[in-house]
Design a protein around this nucleic acid. Structure first.
Lengths: 196, 196
DNA sequence: TTCAAAAACTAATAAGTGTTAGTTTTGTAA
DNA sequence: TTACAAAACTAACACTTATTAGTTTTTGAA
């Protein structure tokens, strides 16, 4: 039987990926060396290759884990009952939760995707574009149902996604404002901008 | 007399800085090599050093040019006459203009500042923090004057700055929506979220 | 205790990095 | 045309990079 490995029961590969996300966020993908990553894992650099395929594979794993999480949630939200307003609000809240709970991974997916190699780079961008289009569709539905103002759906989605993404500036000082207040204030600010 | 140098009358140093901004944006600071930069300038790598001091000096120039532009505008906006609402709106519009007109530089300042060396890194962060605080002060004034809702000023400023920053996702496809519509829609969306 | 597989190690490689030294070419004022 | 400075060039250095090869250690079931 396997002993208690790293931390809990996560595989060493998962541990390496997690440490990589933290380093990629802190220093950027290109400025993070495998030797440095190995050191935080507590091992020599070549030993990493007993568990992973390559440095760029680590980036792929991180980016697509995040992308799939968002895509998966949106699919379930679309299929659920409820108004466009509700669906949009839930999706915004999901974005905020992801930012707060998977900070490193989401940050890396947002900032370091450009270092993905083909065909992963193209796939990632296609998936992201498709996600944005479906979100725009949600806003268009809300406008058609006269729940939203007659705004430009593209601009609205851009504004919302960007504002939520900005939570990355947040976590660093850990201000004395609760996540709950933060989330509600932000959802309010963003929805008030488009709801009739 | 000097012949017609690069493009207009810009110094070669400025040309190099401009090309560097484009490359830093496209590939990231660390992944951009001096040989690559030299090639886009049309010269061998060591020749660059007749005009610049170092690679990191290029990043410093770009980042502080942007930071100083924002700081300078905010100072003049604070000194001007007008309500907090007007000042905030003008500042948002200035951000949008900067994004649309100095795309590469602003992008680099937003994304690659972490590769600045000390003491420039600290100075940059201090300057940015100070900027945010003054913007928060603007919102607090608006709340005190009962022009704004009783929102959390920190969250509001974060939301606004992030939303405007998101314009970086915009320019790439050059959608068939005019900059004017974009600007007005975004200003509207953001101000409606906090104005009483 | 035995033994095989997993995973660590050391050593090395080929490629790429920013930058300097030293030299040649270019441009322009006298 | 001469002469000097600006700016280009080639060659090279000292370092770092991700990764592979080959070997030794560790692990855990039999």
């Amino acid at each position: 039987m396997a002993k208690i490995k790293p931390g809990k029961n996560a595989s060493k590969r998962d541990l390496i990926t997690q440490k990589a996300a933290a380093l990629f966020k802190k220093k950027g993908y290109s400025s993070t060396s495998m030797r440095e990553l190995a050191e935080t894992v507590g091992v020599e650099a070549p030993s990493l290759y007993n568990h992973i395929g390559s440095k760029s594979e680590l980036l792929q794993t991180i980016c697509f884990k995040v992308a799939n999480a968002f895509t998966g949630y949106l699919e379930s939200a679309e299929a659920a009952n409820g108004s466009s307003v509700t669906k949009l609000e839930h999706t915004i809240r999901f974005h905020i939760h992801m930012m707060l709970q998977n900070f490193n991974e989401v940050y890396v997916a947002n900032h370091e995707w450009k270092h993905l190699k083909e065909p992963y780079l193209s796939n990632f961008l296609i998936q992201r574009r498709s996600y944005e289009k479906r979100l725009i569709g949600l806003v268009e539905n809300g406008i058609a149902a006269k729940a939203f103002k007659n705004v430009n759906p593209f601009v609205s989605v851009l504004t919302i996604l960007s504002a939520v993404r900005g939570l990355e500036f947040w976590q660093q000082p850990k201000k004395n404002i609760s996540n709950r207040v933060l989330e509600d204030d932000m959802v309010n600010h963003l929805l008030k901008g488009i709801i009739k």
